[in-house]
Design a protein around this nucleic acid. Structure first.
Lengths: 133, 133
DNA sequence: GCTAGTGTCATACCACGCTATTACAGTAGT
DNA sequence: ACTACTGTAATAGCGTGGTATGACACTAGC
């Protein structure tokens, strides 16, 4: 599991981890029963403190996505796929709404938004390809 | 000048104020030479502390949007419209990019994004109309 | 000159996110 | 049993955003 942390987007690190785990489950990159990286491994890999990762895992546990087995590790729960697939678009939708709300309140038109979306999407797609290369 | 503060969108209050002043200038709701509300007035009106408003005004001053006249108030600068019009779409673009980046990294398709945008825009437009009524 | 209004500054306090460090309890492999 | 891992927890410290409060210097209107 690869985890990208963006320090400058305003979202707390522990929440970014939670979201990415959920996306990974929803997309089938993490399967039911599969172990996720230990808190120490993920902390080292993402250059983040153990406590921060631990908080994310604890939250995911309380949401029913993870199951902790003390001394062994943490595992994707059986109900996780259902939960995560349900949240998949909602997580994006909520962030999107906040941006659109500001745009609408300030006289930006639907057309401007649409071109903005297409432009940025195109740009990001190419960035992603060059990253992979 | 009416100012809406959203406490739950992750953007610092002082930054929200800055953005809304800029939008107001870009849209011609605030004209060059016009006085903006005093720090105490805006603080009371938005239920925010004076220092927070003051910080927003100070930032806008350093960006060349406002001019402070000690003992009198603050005024929209001559170069403000140019600056603010230039930033108008950029401010939205940056927030939008952050959301699209997350979407792209997690296998959301352009189609899903487009329908999300249209749905939410439609929803927000109606909300705004009912607010005005 | 007095008063009421400006912006500005300093101090203290709190909540939150994050880090660093240490320690503890449990499991698995040898 | 020993070792090397797991998750969990407590503590202390830092930076930032926000509040509350009080004080200062300045200006405009009466």
């Amino acid at each position: 599991m690869i985890c990208h942390i963006d320090a400058g987007n305003g979202i707390p690190i522990y929440e970014q981890i939670e979201r990415q785990v959920k996306f990974a489950v929803a997309n089938g990159w993490l399967l039911v029963g599969e172990r996720i990286p230990s808190v120490r491994d993920l902390a080292t890999q993402t250059a983040v403190n153990v406590n921060t990762v631990s908080r994310a895992y604890r939250d995911l546990q309380q949401q029913g996505v993870l199951i902790a087995i003390r001394g062994t590790g943490m595992v994707i729960s059986g109900q996780a796929p259902q939960i995560c697939k349900q949240d998949r678009l909602e997580m994006i939708r909520e962030r999107l709404r906040s941006v659109l709300q500001e745009a609408l309140q300030n006289q930006i038109s639907v057309g401007e938004i649409r071109t903005l979306v297409d432009d940025e999407w195109h740009q990001l797609s190419q960035d992603q390809k060059t990253d992979e290369a």
